[in-house]
Design a binder for these strands. Structure first.
Lengths: 201, 201, 201, 201
DNA sequence: GAATAAACGAGACGGTACGTCTCGTCTTATG
DNA sequence: CATAAGACGAGACGTACCGTCTCGTTTATTC
């Protein structure tokens, strides 16, 4: 099977084509609104009003405002998580976690937290976030882990997923459930503790 | 001054006193509804209908349905987090994390996740949860840590809060942002990894 | 006949007697409120608050706020309609209608109109008003009529009730359904027209 | 310029046009409800439920249920008051008043009374009723009067408005403030008395 | 260049939950 | 025992947002 039809590109569909301008205006308006009033307070009517796009058009291309929000959020941020690859797993983890903390701390951090929050009641949002946000991040973590194991820097008797959870979990815990700081020093301290362990000797 | 402050007890307030029955019925109805239809789909009208309490009475004592939900949730669960205190910090952490994972896995787990989710848009809910749920849990973690340090089982160069984050953070990360399992084996593996660290030797 | 049984006075009923102060305070508060905010906007709670009387006490002695309003209204106004009896039916009617118009025009006029309005949906209010307000007024009209007939000033082939309607009806018509003036000149014009008739010669 | 101003007709307004079906269903439902349960007991929710129209739509086009009621009432009745014009003012008045009495007596009579009643607390309802109900009726009365004067049947020293009040006032007085009958004989008696006057000779 | 087709903006629509308000009843402690 | 204070159940109110629909218009491909 050599990759079949591919429905869109040469399709040259009849009728008026989808307006790219509308799409981008909707996403921009949603992105702004999320930051200004928050995810919950943002209304579809306001997105429509700000973007100059009809409400029906929004509902034609997105199932609800949360889908718009997720797409707007992903488009607005640099979705590709950078993989440091400095030659040291500890240094890589440090840089990766610092990046995450910085992101959480920034203007998109609260929006992200609200999206994760909304996802607890909307399985489709949850799936979308997991696929486009969490997975890429974890993938970087896994790559760091694998390289460290290959270099003999890391234990081999620990499940890779557990290891990634240990490094990335505390940051989200702090973001969503505490008001503890999310700064670079904290990132470094978490990575240091995770690497060397809590037990004495 | 013999008479201690204590403004209320002998107050013998004038007028009809608040109905304890109404309060408990509201909380019970809310608790049931959260489990049955979820936090978002639960409506104030339905709480009123099920509890036989007037809607105005609900709004008199709680500002909105989320405040009811938080109180109902706290009342419904054994809010006092048990402190194992087995004489070993690792064993204590293991038991504590197993307890948390079991709670997350159970019927209240999803409700809790939805509450944390809602808290991202409602600062007052967030404060309530932090004060009545997160803090007691962390307090147990801190006690375990302090005892372990006193016994010489744990490192002394690690910030206590970081240590608690390392043990409890991954569980919440899994609950809210992944669909990874939340079983006892995972709890044990997380504690083991946290104690011994990720770095080789 | 020296004033008969009258069940209460010597009864020396057991328990705390009804507070006359409460009764009058309720009526005073209701009377004020009706004039200030209107009959519909007046609430039982506000009557209670202003009068310093418990709401339950109000409902103990009156079935609802409209009953309070009727009683307050009757108490506040000089309920006894004066019978002029000048020796001339036309002059009597003129004076009576002038009095009615003046009353309609005054601060109690709008309250009265609102009571009549409310009575359209509350048969008990209607009955109360008819008995204590309309009937005494009509009685004066009937007396004027009878004296005029006896004096030979008035036709004998007209039903007395019709005659009274003809003199008093236009005023209420103006009060309730038009914004035509309610002054003494109008009163005189109505009586003059009613007396002499509309037909030429 | 041949094409006269006429701003609306070819307007071809943008957006979905107002649903005529919704409007008429609301009015029909309100009309039914007023007759069935009365004006006060009729609720906006019930109008919405019966008409299959959203509550928000009702509030979009009418400020409250009374505005709906007035419009429904006017639409349901033959708003154009017929002008008899028989060639005799007395006969014209008789027919007109008979018609009014019949209307008051009928199923719409009580609704009308309740509307007038409500108007005592709602100036906008009052204005609406005056403009669309009272004025047309009075206009007929004025026309009858003018024709009678032209034909020399009626006095010329009586104010036209006073004359109309004299004929139409008693009927409303009876409807709203007494329980006296509203039949054709009464109508005839009133007109007869008004025409010939109350005074002897 | 006319016909066809789809997407578009505007905005009205049915539905539903919200939080507020008033009614008339009740449950206390007080006089 | 009547009272004042005030909490209560019931239920209507008017608002807000959701997601759908119905217009007339615009922008493309197809004949």
């Amino acid at each position: 099977m050599t990759k079949t039809v591919d429905p869109d590109p040469p399709a040259a569909r009849v009728g008026r084509p989808r307006s790219e301008r509308s799409r981008s205006e909707v996403l921009r308006a949603a992105s702004d609104l999320m930051r200004e009033v928050g995810l919950r307070a943002m209304t579809t009517d306001e997105i429509a009003a700000r973007s100059g796009v009809g409400k029906a058009t929004i509902y034609k291309w997105w199932p609800n405002k949360y889908a718009v929000a997720v797409e707007a959020f992903l488009a607005a941020m640099d979705t590709a998580a950078a993989d440091p690859d400095t030659g040291s797993a500890e240094r890589d983890f440090r840089l990766a976690l610092r990046g995450i903390m910085q992101f959480y701390r920034g203007p998109n951090g609260r929006v992200f937290a609200q999206l994760i929050g909304e996802a607890q009641s909307h399985p489709d949002i949850a799936a979308e976030l997991r696929h486009h946000l969490m997975q890429p991040r974890r993938e970087v973590g896994r790559a760091i882990w694998d390289r460290g194991v290959a270099r003999g820097e890391l234990r081999t008797d620990i499940d890779r997923e557990i290891a990634v959870d240990l490094v990335f979990g505390p940051a989200m815990y702090r973001l969503l459930a505490t008001d503890a700081p999310l700064d670079a020093e904290t990132a470094d301290a978490i990575v240091a503790a995770a690497m060397r362990g809590l037990a004495a000797v």
